[in-house]
Each structure stands twice: as C-alpha cells, then as structure tokens.
Design a protein around this nucleic acid. Sequence first.
DNA 1: CAAACTTTCAAACGGTTGTTTAAAATTTAT
DNA 2: ATAAATTTTAAACAACCGTTTGAAAGTTTG
Lengths: 208, 208
Amino acid sequence: MAKTDTKLRILESAEQLFATHGFTHTSLRQITTEANVNLASVNYHFGSKKSLIQSVLKRYLEIYMPLLHQNLNQIAPQKNEIEPVLQAFIKPLFELNKLGKQSPRNFMIMIGRGYSETQGHLRKYIVSEYGETVLLITHKFANALPNISAQELFWRLHFALGALVFVMSSSSALEEIAEADYAESATTEKIVNKIVPFLAAGLSCKSQ
Amino acid sequence: MAKTDTKLRILESAEQLFATHGFTHTSLRQITTEANVNLASVNYHFGSKKSLIQSVLKRYLEIYMPLLHQNLNQIAPQKNEIEPVLQAFIKPLFELNKLGKQSPRNFMIMIGRGYSETQGHLRKYIVSEYGETVLLITHKFANALPNISAQELFWRLHFALGALVFVMSSSSALEEIAEADYAESATTEKIVNKIVPFLAAGLSCKSQ
DNA sequence: CAAACTTTCAAACGGTTGTTTAAAATTTAT
DNA sequence: ATAAATTTTAAACAACCGTTTGAAAGTTTG
C-alpha cells in the first residue's frame, strides 16, 4: 500500500474547502492541490465528486446521528420544556471536537450548505439512513409541545431549521460582520448558545 | 429601437431562474434561452453576469426599501411589542405582487441566496445604498426590545431572516408535504401568518 | 525473485462557463 | 433618403470543470 493516508488527506482537505467555499465552488483541483495528492486520485478512491461529498458528510453523520439518538432517548422533556430537546442536538455536536478543532463548525456549515445546495438530496439521505432517529426527533418535540397541532409543529420545526441552516451557511460572513461591528469573536459555540433560547421561544410560542 | 423589451425579458427570466436554482447554478445560456434573446445581449445590456445579478436585486430593492422605510416610520412600537415591527416588513413585501404573482417569494429567496452566495456583497450594497433604512430598522427593533444588546439583536435578526428565507425558498416542497400530510393548503400568506408569532417570540425572548 | 495486484501520475478528453468579436440588422437623426 | 448610432446575431474565445486513460511506480503475495 502506497501512501495509505491519501484517502484521509482528500477527506480532510475537502471538508475544509467545502465548509469555507461550498460544494459547487470547490473544485477537485483545489482539493487535490491542498491535499498534495494527484487529481485522479479522487476519482480512484471515491468514484466521483458527488460521492466524495457524500463521504465527507457521512464521516460526521455516522458519529453524530447515533449520539443524537442516544441523547434524545435519555431525556423526558416536561411540558413546554423545549430546551432539553434542543440541547440533545447541541451536545453531540461538540463531541465532534475529537475529530478536529473545527469539526463542529464544519459539520454544521456543511449540513446547512447541503440543504440549500444539494436540492434535498441530503435530506432524503438522512431520512432513508436515519429514519428511526428522525421519528424520535418529531416524537420528542411533540411530547414537549403537546398543545400545538401536528401541522403547526411541522412548520415551526422548519422555521427553526431555517434559522439554523441560514446562520450556519452564512456564518463566516456573519462572523466577520459581528467581529467588525461589535468587536465580538463569534465562535460556533457562541452562536449556538444564542440561537437555542431564540428557537426555544419560537417553538413554544402561543399561536394565535 | 429594436425589441425594447430585451432588457426586461432578461431581468424577468434571470429572476425566475435565480430564485429557483441560485445565482451560480444559473447560466447565462439558460437565461437567454428562457428569455428568447441572444446570449451576447446580457453582456451588451448589463456588462457582466455579476452586474446582472445586481440589477435583478436592485429592481426589487428600489421598490421595497422605500416602502419599508415608510412603514417603519409610521409605527411607534411599545416595549416588547415586536409584531408591529415585523408587519412593517411583511406589508410592503406583498406590494411586490404588483410586479408579478411570484415576486414576493422570488425577492425573499434571492435575498437569502444573496447572503450565502455572494460573500456579503449584497449586505454591503444594502448598507451603502439604504444605510438610513438599515439604521431605522435597528432603531425600531431596539426601541421595541430595549433589554437586549446590539450584538444580541444582530444575531436574532439574522436568525429571523434565516427562518423566513429558508421557509420561502423551500415553500413549494413544504407546501406539498403539508398538503399531503395535513390536508392544508399552504399559501405564502398563510406561512407568513404562522411565522410572525414564531419570530416575535424568538426575537423578544429572555436571553440567559 | 517473479507474478499479481494496488496505487500514483501526467496527460488528455469532452463539456460547460462567461466573455468577446465583428458583421448584420434595425432604429434614429440629419 | 442617407448617414449615424444602436441593437442583434452567430461564431469563436480562453478558462475551467469532472472524468478517463494507460503507462509507471509501488506493494503484496506465491
């Protein structure tokens, strides 16, 4: 085996570039240059660019989704106590720190980009691969918010997802503005801590 | 003058395609084919693709921003009364219906895409061109929410923008699911009516 | 060592992109 | 009507993209 780390080098360079510039704005030539490997090795090891994107996302989903499932199972949310449910999403996110310092941030940005760039392919993949966890998610939210109807919950979860996805996909730009205008270093952790109360309030608001 | 409507035809086709597929995923050939004009006419009338994007956005901003300014000036929000401020954004949005049935939706989606795709160029343009209105926005929100800091407001406004934009951009898909699962016809106006209380609660939540 | 297999590499492929060119067509002005 | 200015057109441009190729290099196996 020659250069056993070629695959890993590609994955790591791709992740960083995908998170920074998006999937479509990142070329295989950028990735292979950054990774110091030959251009053709992406197609040799992954088959195609599409498959590389899936592999990069899969690397995190395989860690994150079981942890999320586990966390969701460990909570028994009180009525209108929505923050524990949201924390079940946040806690395993920062366990990705083990993989790399920027892993939580890169993962969130890529999830956000995956929703707006891949035309729903990511969503379908998650539902097909982690359908049980997706069911558990809606179940826990419905338990915590028994007063609102199923369709109201449907919309609110998508409002919440939208807020998260948008902020993450434009996080680098927003961080720059925040740092320039408010002299505030805006780490992923800080943004997440700010958005949780926001989403909790919105999700559990009284509909009129 | 030969075919006086060439410029307009390009603008309208570009708008529809930008809203549906994003700026970078839409080629000039798609636009000119859809508009039934020659490929080179984009560069002749607009100079470049970048400039075309700006023109498409400008067409709506020139109508929307003065209306927003006017609406914001007409309100005097009470403390923690955030819904009137949100309505000042919503009302002029639906005045864009005069330009075309899908104009409000297209405008929102493009604003959202402009934030995540153009690397902050859109925001800089809005701030430089409509700085007064931007100031008025933060002023009215700050008045309605005197307890939260400027940077906290900055983030919450972007959370709100994200929720709105995400739901609008995926509204067609979400409408299908909603109609299939909950037998609920989901018009843009209905979605807006659902999201306003959500955003109001999130924006005025107690930060911890 | 030699054969079989895996991985790397430079080069080229076909395709798409935004942009430019220069002639043709059309409109406007004298 | 003739000249000037504007607009449209087809064609080509250079640059980039993801992917494929086939030979070279490296590694593992018999």
